[in-house]
Simulated assay, not measured.
Amino acid sequence: MSAVNFEQWAVPDLKLPFGGRTYSVRPPTVEAAKQILAAAVLGEVKFGLHPGPVPGEIVTILSTIGDAHPALGDEAYAAMVADGVPAASIDRMSVYATFYWARGREYADIFARLFWTPRDVDLDEAGEPAPKDS
């Protein structure tokens, strides 16, 4: 019996280009996948995409994450830190990767566009959106 080459069906790495470098994020392990799914649920509640509260089982899984970055993996996260990538950018890449692994690329792209695309909005002195002139 011959062996089956499974490479063609394996999930590829997530590629995150930033600052002239591309960070390669391996698909999550079984343990990391549980943490990523829990983080996705928390994110959807925090961002108002789903009503809360976050279920207790999810909170328990979240408590196991500690200082880890399951959606980015240790290698990609360490490389970003070593390269001096700003913390806010790492945070956004981590959120993107969380939704990418939990819900797929289309969902992660929609989320990123919705929350991080700059808006062409004029603000008044108080920082509130000002009405556009007709």
Rank of each mutant, 00 (worst) to 15 (best):
22 T>Q: 15
22 T>V: 08
23 Y>W: 05
23 Y>C: 13
23 Y>E: 06
24 S>F: 09
25 V>S: 02
25 V>C: 00
27 P>G: 03
28 P>I: 10
28 P>Y: 06
29 T>P: 15
29 T>M: 03
30 V>I: 06
31 E>S: 12
32 A>N: 13
32 A>S: 08
32 A>H: 15
33 A>I: 13
33 A>H: 14
33 A>V: 06
33 A>C: 10
34 K>H: 00
34 K>V: 10
35 Q>A: 07
35 Q>W: 02
35 Q>F: 00
36 I>Q: 05
36 I>W: 03
36 I>S: 02
38 A>G: 14
38 A>C: 09
38 A>L: 04
40 A>D: 07
41 V>H: 08
42 L>E: 02
43 G>Y: 14
43 G>E: 03
44 E>G: 08
45 V>G: 15
46 K>M: 14
46 K>Y: 09
47 F>I: 08
47 F>G: 06
47 F>S: 14
48 G>Q: 01
49 L>Q: 08
50 H>F: 10
50 H>W: 12
50 H>T: 11
51 P>E: 10
51 P>Y: 04
51 P>L: 00
53 P>G: 02
53 P>S: 04
56 G>I: 11
56 G>Q: 06
56 G>L: 07
57 E>F: 15
57 E>D: 02
58 I>Y: 05
58 I>Q: 12
58 I>D: 09
59 V>N: 04
59 V>A: 00
59 V>P: 06
60 T>K: 06
60 T>F: 13
60 T>S: 01
61 I>C: 04
61 I>A: 00
61 I>S: 07
62 L>H: 04
62 L>M: 03
63 S>Y: 07
